[in-house]
Simulated assay, not measured.
Amino acid sequence: MSLPKPVMRGLLAKRLRFHLPIAFGVAITTALLYKFAVTEPRKKAYANFYKHYDAVKEFKAMREAGIFESVRPAGK
């Protein structure tokens, strides 16, 4: 008893018809999950931070702490 020959003709097309929709589905699901789990909360966090951020106040605090070499502390 011999083994039957494998069917090679059209094998790639047959496998692509099965795997391509699955690959697209996984890719789209991953992209949507990343968008709503990472990107949107990050955008909200940045918006909230900059809503209350005062750059001048932050600059003055860093200047007083002596972080900048080229800027003298106020009052000197």
Rank of each mutant, 00 (worst) to 15 (best):
S2K: 10
S2I: 05
L3F: 11
P4Q: 01
P4G: 02
K5I: 07
K5D: 06
K5T: 08
K5W: 06
P6W: 00
P6C: 00
P6A: 00
P6Q: 01
V7E: 05
V7G: 04
M8R: 12
R9A: 14
L11E: 05
L12V: 06
L12D: 09
A13K: 08
K14Y: 04
K14I: 02
R15A: 07
R15P: 03
L16M: 11
L16G: 03
R17Q: 02
F18A: 11
F18T: 11
F18I: 08
P21F: 03
I22W: 11
I22Y: 08
A23N: 09
F24P: 09
G25Q: 02
V26G: 07
A27Q: 11
I28N: 05
I28C: 05
T29M: 07
T30P: 05
T30V: 10
A31V: 07
A31L: 13
L32R: 06
L33C: 06
L33D: 08
L33F: 06
L33W: 12
K35R: 06
F36S: 01
A37F: 03
V38W: 11
V38M: 13
T39S: 08
E40D: 08
P41G: 04
P41E: 01
R42Y: 08
K43R: 14
K43D: 04
K43Q: 11
K44C: 04
K44F: 04
K44V: 07
A45C: 02
A45V: 03
Y46I: 09
A47K: 02
A47Q: 00
N48S: 05
F49Y: 04
F49N: 02
Y50G: 01
K51D: 01
K51E: 03
K51C: 01
H52C: 07
Y53C: 01
D54I: 02
A55Y: 05
V56G: 13
V56N: 08
V56E: 15
V56K: 15
V56R: 15
F59Y: 15
K60W: 14
A61F: 15
M62T: 14
R63Y: 09
E64S: 12
A65P: 08
A65W: 10
A65S: 15
I67K: 15
E69F: 14
E69I: 12
S70M: 12
S70P: 03
V71P: 02
V71G: 02
R72K: 12
R72C: 10
P73K: 14
A74T: 14
A74F: 13
G75E: 02
G75N: 07
G75Y: 08
G75I: 09
G75H: 10
K76F: 12
